[in-house]
């Protein structure tokens, strides 16, 4: 079990990142609180020896994304909402104050994490593939499709440079 100091340091260091992932996926603040508790409790109980800060960050990202998906699945089971309905479900209780964020939140769920990880966190497609346990080609495809949707929504002319 990790010490109180260790977990407090991790909360201070990664809370904003976890909050952004929650913002991308979750509908309300209560779910976000649950995700915070789940992620940092797993951190306390985990025996993983992190080789570096990057390793630790990627671990927390993966745990957060999985926790969000678990909550969505649970919601999905209890409310018996169809997959299409769930994908289009509004993601955050915080009002997105920019057209860009609104466009990202409107993306289907499968595009949201790759967009966040690539465009905000700066991960490459192979790194994203490792974090999300997906094939690299799948990540390239998702990024490419997400980019097309966002360009269409925002009217930009951005190109996804394959990293």
């Amino acid at each position: 079990m990790r010490s109180e100091a260790e977990v407090n340091r991790a909360i201070d260091q990664y809370a904003d990142m976890v909050r952004r992932v929650c913002f991308t996926y979750m509908k309300n603040f209560a779910d976000t609180e649950d995700i915070f508790q789940t992620v940092f409790l797993k951190y306390v109980l985990s025996c993983v020896e992190f080789e570096s800060e990057a390793h630790e960050k990627a671990w927390i990202l993966r745990v957060t994304i999985n926790a969000c998906k678990d909550v969505l699945k649970s919601f999905f089971r209890t409310k018996q909402v169809s997959l299409d309905e769930m994908i289009d479900y509004p993601a955050a209780e915080i009002e997105p104050h920019s057209d860009v964020l609104e466009a990202v939140l409107r993306l289907p769920a499968k595009y949201k994490d790759v967009v966040y990880l690539h465009y905000y966190e700066g991960y490459t497609a192979p790194e994203i593939a490792q974090i999300l346990n997906k094939k690299v080609n799948t990540v390239y495809t998702l990024l490419s499709r997400a980019k097309r949707v966002l360009q269409k929504e925002l009217g930009g002319e951005e190109e996804y440079a394959e990293s």
């Binding site: 809370a15 904003d16 976890v18 909050r19 952004r20 913002f23 915070f36 915080i94 997105p96 104050h97 920019s98 860009v100 964020l101 990202v104 967009v115 966040y116 465009y119 905000y120 925002l154 930009g156």
Partner: peptide, 11 residues
């Protein structure tokens, strides 16, 4: 744009 948009979201 995405970076700027997410920047405002903090815990």
């Amino acid at each position: 744009k995405i970076q700027e948009a997410y920047q405002g979201i903090v815990a």
